[in-house]
Amino acid sequence: MAKVLVVTSGKGGVGKTTSTAALGAALAQQGKNVVVVDFDVGLRNLDLVMGAERRVVYDLINVVQGDAKLAQALIRDKRIDNLCLLPASQTRDKDALTEDGVARVMEELKEKFDWIICDSPAGIERGAQLAMRHADVAVVVTNPEVSSVRDSDRIIGMLDSKTLKAERGERMEKHLLLTRYDPLRAERGDMLKVDDVLEILSIPLLGIIPESQEVLRASNIGQPVTVSNISSAPARAYIDAAKRLQGETLVVTIPADRRAGLFGKLFGRRAA
């Protein structure tokens, strides 16, 4: 049974696209048939993070409007066979998405894939609402700071009211993914602690992604972090989160890159 997952947050820049790519790749590496769908029409990024920007011909809008077949728009990942990307259009805007068109594309994707991961645009308007509309599961990406937490809270309210699942009176499955977490800064009080965020949002925790240079590096070379460096702390956190999405029960830990190694690098560079 295909599952539609929306990666959403309300606030921009908290790591929705990075998380979509990393979770999609991790689920594919765990043997699932996965498609990641970019709903950020007009500001597409997922193609860059997946390293597929030079292979985009048709996009979600073309398929929604019936100008291209789904098979023509899907881009198969070069590294992982069972991972596909459905890119957004950069030249259009969110008004080009129609509700019927999106519903049709979603039905078609459900026949082909086990997981359909929708990368939501920031905000609470039409684009974000259409991205969450068909979801069975939501991953709410949040940074440990107050504005991100409040925006996430707003999005959770919308997940519980504006989705098809909510309108049918069913319960939307929601998970919190805490990104850019720095245990040292949280301990010093510069950042909200995990418990504070959980207390405010009161949804179950899917994982904690530590703040790491690896994430930025992965984006810049166009690879999901779970592909670029599978043993890095953020990659391990995403891999565990993907396992939890499939129902595994794992204790949530905050993976860390070895501090000594990091300092070693810093000092090494300075000496050179």
Binding site: R150, D151, R154, G157, D160, S202
Partner: peptide
């Protein structure tokens, strides 16, 4: 019986 979310 549910939390009241931001914006509601």
């Amino acid at each position: 019986r549910e939390p009241v979310r931001s914006g509601q």
